[in-house]
Nucleic acid binder design. Structure first.
Length: 818
DNA sequence: GTCCTTTCCG
């Protein structure tokens, strides 16, 4: 700015202190130009003109000035030393400030105060306090603002111990009723999350100005105590202090926090009446409040009416769209922001990445990735964490892993994001590997880590691991966390321990909607439809409102238990009583409900009447029902439409082939197989696994590579004879083009049977056997297992991809209805 | 010379 200064302008009046000084002129384009140093002539360095130094708005200009100061021998003049020191410390160049400071022989108190301020604003807390100590040792008398700066620094570092120390020193220095220091004390305690202590100090203040009130309002708001914050806003008015814009900008996030549109609107009203609503920070907070309170259109209205927007305003609106599920609008606004020439910040990038992830838009995601690299945000941990999540959501967990591996400053969030990414992309082993690795690297898992890894364990359904992670959660003192507990409920249910799940459920008093959903679904997959319904009815009487997932769980429970009327009733109630518009999965559930129960025509009719175009899940359910009830004609219809939707999963083709096979339509079976090959679709090989003595044993159909293979096959041979003796008939009708005995042989070596035989050999009599199958259990194995449970007097629990089957005394809990 | 807005993982 030096070139813009008029050297002939009258010098500022000597009485003008720094507090009333106008802000330094700022022209962002100027500091980039080389400074016209030679044009500055030495006559400027008369004493009044030394004030010029103060007008330096950036350290660069200061550095350009310095050689001149030295050249003209002014460096040792007190006024220059004072000003230089002040400037260096204001700009955070503490080393240079210290150089000036140390060179001064007889230091005035002012110089100490100036140094302390610089340290408090720019140095680590340790250094600041060390300087404060030397200051006291040099017999410098502390002043009010020494303490306010020190306390702010303690608050920013959330260093309660040091905060208390400063607090007591302040009392010793007789500042305990000063409104400035005490406001800083209130703020410090609030920042250290000790709102009660902050409040105690606030109540003890002999007088309170609006700043003091703002400190306590913000204190409550930032600690998630919205009611406290809003209560204090009321109290301050009763006390005759009018809320200012700072009060309101703190009160708004409090309304946002409790999602209270009503409170937010009333603050908006106050802001309008006081004329604060045109302030950029107020209107930005309003945008955030409205969008988070579910009034996204109103947020957009406020946003569009803003005459002045800053990056934060844009970020709030973009994130508002992202959080309310409108990722497309978020991206559109992001583009608009770029078009208007705003430079995205780390926050903008994170919001944009979130939206890309939601949309699964890899191309856009890559574009944002390139942009953030250009912007130099490639080492910002938060940004990189968002990138990991974006790539994971776009099903490119490989790219996510690449980012994670290269990320130098991994945070706990990075680990959590990567674990979740693996878990959600079916990379269970990698999720578990990372979870144990993080502990090797001394990163302590938190509730998010557990909530990410537990579903991966639920995928494996190994009870031993479930118990281990439960114990681990207890040791980490995280088992009380509602989301961890909910994940554990789901885990126990998926490990076949629905009673244990219920026990955990009963210990939770403040249940989240997902807690109810997990338990209802647990009952549903175990075929306990009645229990699921009872629990749902209990939920309706609780303060927690069901969401559309709840209805999905309830309908699937009804479907697995054959409760057709109940299911239909709930489907109707969902729209009528709760106003939920059913999604594709719910329609699929309804088709499943009707179809499984044999009401195939009704199911088909239901599909024709759907208000939205039926998707894969709907025709998939129809096809599955046609397989159960051996309906070739409707099966073909469903498959035709299903294949038009181009599913990536080859399972539907297999389903159709099985429908044909059951009807002995072998040419059609062959046709479907050819079609699969042509489309590059593969049948997922069926496999069954069983957990034994800390090891998971996995079997594929006919596999002979197990160490105990000989014993297993021998036991299986005997087993087949035993169950045949009590009435088992091999279901060979769905196998074609081989001899009868080969058919039997093929059936007998199904993975389910191998796993059961292995379990029988290796466990003592009476021990329940638990198997996990990656596809649906086959009809013959289901039948055989019933007989096996009878002849061996074992309880056999099979979890297939759809549900649980509890076999006992020759019967299955699904009532052969699955 | 104190107080204030936006953001990542469930």
């Amino acid at each position: 700015m030096l070139s813009t200064l008029n050297p002939f302008a009258p010098p500022p009046s000597p009485s003008s202190s720094s507090s009333t000084r106008p802000p330094p002129p700022s022209n962002p384009s100027l500091p980039l130009r080389p400074s016209p140093t030679p044009q500055i002539s030495s006559h400027l360095f008369s004493h009044p003109s030394s004030l010029l130094l103060e007008l330096c708005s950036d350290p660069r200009e200061l550095r350009q000035f310095l050689p001149l100061v030295i050249k003209h021998g002014l460096f040792h003049e007190h006024i220059f030393q004072t000003k230089l020191l002040g400037l260096f410390s204001r700009f955070g160049h503490l080393q240079e400030a210290a150089l000036v400071f140390d060179s001064i022989a007889d230091k005035t108190d002012d110089l100490y105060h100036s140094m302390l301020k610089g340290h408090a604003k720019h140095s680590p807390l340790d250094k600041t306090l060390a300087f404060f100590c030397t200051m006291k040792h040099s017999q410098v008398c502390p002043v009010v603002y020494n303490f306010t700066y020190l306390l702010k620094s303690c608050g920013d570092n959330a260093d309660l111990a040091r905060g208390r120390e400063i607090h007591s020193q302040l009392i010793a220095n007789g500042f305990s009723s000063n409104v400035f220091t005490m406001t800083a004390v209130v703020n410090m305690y609030a920042k250290c999350r000790r709102v009660d202590e902050a409040r105690k100090m606030f109540d003890r203040m002999p007088e309170r100005d609006s700043v003091a009130w703002n400190a306590i309002v913000a204190g409550y708001a930032q600690n998630g105590l919205a009611e406290g914050a809003l209560g204090m806003v009321v109290r301050m008015q009763d006390d005759g202090v009018a809320p200012d814009s700072i009060t309101l900008v703190s009160a708004l996030p409090a309304c946002t926090n409790i999602r209270s549109l009503r409170a937010g609107k009333s603050v908006h009203g106050v802001a309008i009446r006081a004329g604060f609503d045109s302030l950029v920070n107020i209107s930005t907070a309003l945008v955030d409040m409205y969008s988070k309170c579910g009034a996204i259109e109103k947020a957009r209205l406020v946003f569009d009416r803003m005459r002045l927007k800053n990056v934060v305003s844009w970020n709030s609106m973009i994130d508002g769209y992202g959080q309310s599920g409108d990722a497309e609008q978020a991206i559109r606004l992001f583009k608009k922001m770029l078009a208007q020439g705003f430079e995205p910040t780390d926050v903008t990038i994170m919001c944009a990445l979130h939206a890309c992830g939601e949309l699964g838009d890899l191309e856009e995601g890559r574009f944002v990735h390139e942009m953030l690299t250009r912007l130099g945000l490639g080492s910002d941990a938060s940004v990189m964490n968002s990138l990991i999540t974006m790539y994971s959501k776009c099903k490119r967990v490989d790219l996510a892993a690449e980012i994670f591996e290269c990320l130098k400053a991994k945070t706990l969030v990075s680990w959590n994001a990567m674990i979740l990414g693996y878990a959600q992309n079916g990379r269970t082993d990698d999720a578990l590997r990372l979870f144990s690795m993080m502990q090797w690297e001394n990163v302590k898992p938190d509730s998010f880590s557990l909530v990410s890894v537990i579903p991966a364990l639920a995928d494996l359904s190994v009870l031993r691991q479930a118990k281990w992670v439960h114990g681990y959660a207890i040791r980490l003192c995280l088992d009380g966390n509602i989301f961890v507990r909910t994940a554990l409920i789901d885990l126990y249910a998926k490990c076949g321990r629905v009673n244990m799940a219920r026990k955990l459920f009963d210990t939770i008093h403040e249940r989240h909607v997902t807690t109810w959903n997990a338990m209802i679904d647990g009952y549903g997959t175990h075929g306990f439809g009645k229990s699921a319904i009872e629990l749902f009815e209990e939920m309706k009487r609780s303060p927690v409102k069901p969401n559309n997932i709840t209805f999905l769980c309830v309908l699937s429970a009804c479907s697995h238990a054959g409760l057709v009327d109940e299911g239909q009733k709930y489907f109707a109630s969902m729209k009528k009583d709760y106003g939920f518009e059913p999604g594709m999965d719910l329609y699929g559930s309804m088709v499943d409900l009707l179809g499984r129960a044999g009401k195939l025509d009704e199911a088909w009719d239901f599909i024709q009447k759907m208000p939205i175009k039926p998707g894969i899940s709907v025709y998939g359910a129809m096809l599955g029902a046609c397989k159960i009830h051996k309906n070739v004609q409707l099966g073909e219809e469903a498959a035709k439409r299903l294949f038009e939707l181009d599913p990536e999963d080859g399972g539907y083709h297999v389903l159709l082939a099985n429908i044909y096979a059951a009807a002995s339509m072998w040419e059609d079976v062959a046709r479907v197989r050819t079609m699969m090959e042509k489309n590059g679709l593969q049948k997922t090989p069926g496999c069954s696994s069983i957990d034994l003595k800390n090891e998971v044993h996995t079997f594929y159909s006919g596999s002979t590579n197990h160490l105990q293979a000989e014993r297993i096959y021998a036991r299986l041979d005997r087993l087949i004879d035993e169950i045949k003796a009590v009435g088992y008939m091999p279901d060979t009708e769905s196998i074609h083009d081989v001899e009868e005995d080969v058919k039997e042989q093929l059936l007998n070596t199904h993975s389910e049977k191998l796993a059961i035989a292995f379990g029988l050999i290796n466990t003592s009599p009476g021990t329940p056997i638990q198997i996990r199958k990656n596809l649906r259990i086959c009809t013959d194995c289901h039948n055989a297992t019933k007989f096996i449970s009878q002849v061996t007097e074992r309880e056999i629990i099979v979890r297939d991809i759809q549900r649980f089957h509890h076999f006992k005394n020759g019967r299955c809990s699904c009532g052969d209805y699955w």
